[in-house]
Write a protein that binds this DNA or RNA. Structure first.
Ligand SMILES: [Mn+2]
Ligand SMILES: [Mn+2]
Ligand SMILES: [Zn+2]
Ligand SMILES: [Zn+2]
Lengths: 140, 140
DNA sequence: ACAACTAAAGAAAACCGTTGTCAATAGCTA
DNA sequence: TAGCTATTGACAACGGTTTTCTTTAGTTGT
């Protein structure tokens, strides 16, 4: 079963229905390795289902985010892009030019976090790590 | 010279003028150790200069950000808060409840970044690291 | 101190991404 | 196949931010 099919199935389990506009949005977000904002999703979705409305894009994004199938990505030029969610403890490496995204593991912040907790008295519950750069294709 | 005075001096060097509303915003952002959004800055600034308008808050934030004296902070509940800028290579530890912010150094991502560059072909130019938790006062 | 210049102010309106409303449509289930 | 209702698209509303415009006031040179 493809990723899009699996996402649609998860929507169905929650009482959701599989419709053509929803399928268009799901396929784009499941299959694209770039952070896309709602307007970009809309533009791409219209190629698969021209009658789709922007509002439906927003609503589908909202549902997918609630199911933790996609997540919001924070960038210099705004925080309105979405990307397939991380699986487990992963972070993301983003191309600043084209938005291409790669997940990675292997950051080791345990010692830093432990020592900061001791020094500051904070209880640290979460960390965000994002790397930015240029993907091979954008290095001209 | 206090930090606020230094910021106002930097605005003057750029041809800016020192006014009462601007001074109110500058003092709040220079002296507060919490990430504040424009509405919060406005509310605090009104205590020092009741006639100030929200638009002036936005304009002053814009100027301070351009001078790299403050920077935008990304959080779960939005990305509209501002904080005194990092000095050199620092990251930030934020209290999820009250927004209190602490800068820290000592993250060591060199090896990870080098190995990711080799494995992925990306050129990595920047990294964002933020820690979230509860400050001592908010641990109830 | 004064005048001249112009940056900055506040008020109001515009802007625009996002969210809410609503009647019509179309998945799903029995 | 019929009935129920989730979802749709059109449209309006919303709210944070930006723009416009006129007035105020900080700065500079005399
Ligand atoms: Mn990690
Ligand atoms: Mn670092
Ligand atoms: Zn953000
Ligand atoms: Zn706190």
């Amino acid at each position: 079963m493809s990723l899009s099919e699996s996402w649609l199935a998860q929507l169905q389990v929650e009482g959701g229905r599989v419709t053509a506009p929803r399928r268009a949005v799901v396929e784009i977000l499941a299959e694209t390795d770039r952070a896309l904002n709602p307007a970009e999703v809309y533009e791409l979705a219209r190629r698969r289902h021209p009658a789709i409305g922007l509002v439906t894009v927003y609503r589908t994004i909202e549902r997918l985010e609630a199911l933790r199938l996609i997540e919001r990505i924070h960038q210099h030029d705004g925080c309105h892009a979405f990307l397939r969610a991380a699986q487990g403890h992963e972070h993301v490496l983003l191309c600043e030019r084209c938005g291409r995204a790669l997940r990675f593991v292997g950051d080791d912040l345990e010692d830093l976090i432990r020592s900061l907790q001791e020094r500051t008295g904070f209880i640290i519950r979460e960390h965000w790590l994002q790397l930015f750069g240029l993907c091979p294709a954008c290095q001209t």
